Amino acid sequence: MASLINPPLTLPQNKLNPGGVLAVSTSGITNKIFQPSSTRWNHRRCLLMRAKTSVEMDMLAKESVGTNAVDNKDFGVVSMHHVGVLCENLERSLDFYQNILGLKINEARPHDKLPYRGAWLWVGTEMIHLMELPNPDPLTGRPEHGGRDRHTCIAIRDVSKLKAVLDKAGIPYSLSHSGRPAIFTRDPDANALEFTQVDA
């Protein structure tokens, strides 16, 4: 995998000749036929060419890295890694996320190395990081429909099956106002969750 910090060097095509060899400019060398009288002259000429080639390669590398990093802003975004969700009581939230939604804990994550209680839950190949902190968001006065609030969206295969699970648990929800197969609900701390149906 390519490093995100040191992207691979790609040379601009106009600097390469058809054989893939860097075209080195010799404009700084006087246009005369070199007929070296000694090996010492050949050695100096060789060093001069190496130095010039090295400087041009460095310039091309900087141009290439600068163009990719600044102009294209391509620093290697792959996917969403995790979403942080605040909760007032970890056990209450785990009951919801594990027993209602069926998410599994990622035991490999550092649960005990942080200065607060929490848990990492798998959502496909990404995660939700539950963090037990005093909840800065009020439970009341929030938008009725979670789509108008900060929310986390989870892709699922069947909205109707989740609807049945939420009905059985007595958890309120609303369907997407656009009519697409999506359902909005809130966890015990009023964090808005969207579940959108996708073809898998």
Rank of each mutant, 00 (worst) to 15 (best):
N89L: 03
E144F: 13
F75H: 12
D58T: 06
K104P: 01
I156K: 01
E91A: 06
H82W: 06
Q13K: 14
C87T: 09
E132M: 01
L90N: 00
L11F: 11
Q13A: 14
K113H: 09
E126K: 08
T140R: 07
K52P: 03
L86F: 13
P134M: 02
D58Y: 00
S54R: 07
F75K: 09
W41L: 15
E126L: 02
L121C: 07
S38R: 10
E88G: 15
V77S: 01
M59E: 13
P134C: 00
H81F: 09
K104F: 01
T30Y: 05
R45G: 11
L90D: 00
F96W: 04
P115F: 09
L90R: 00
T67N: 10
S93R: 00
D95R: 04
T67K: 11
N42K: 11
G76H: 04
L139W: 07
E132L: 00
G19C: 09
I33P: 03
P136R: 10
R157E: 12
I100G: 03
L103Q: 02
E63Q: 12
G102H: 01
L133T: 03
N17Q: 11
G28V: 07
F75G: 04
K62H: 09
G76K: 01
I29Q: 06
R109A: 15
D74V: 09
V70L: 15
E56Q: 12
G66Y: 07
N31G: 12
N72T: 14
L16M: 15
G124D: 14
N17I: 11
R44Q: 09
S25P: 11
L103W: 03
A61W: 08
R44L: 15
S25H: 08
C87F: 00
S54Y: 13
W120D: 06
D74R: 06
G76Q: 05
G146M: 05
K104N: 07
G141H: 03
E132T: 04
R40L: 14
R109Y: 04
H145I: 14
S79A: 08
F96I: 06
M59G: 05
H111N: 10
V85T: 13
E144W: 08
R148G: 15
S64G: 03
R50Q: 15
E56F: 11
M131E: 14
D74Q: 11
K52R: 14
P18Q: 13
E144M: 12
A108Q: 12
S38A: 12
H145S: 13
A108Y: 01
V85H: 11
D74M: 02
N99G: 02
I156D: 04
R45L: 13
G141R: 03
L86Q: 11
R148W: 13
V70S: 14
W122F: 15
V24Q: 12
A108F: 10
G84L: 04
E63T: 06
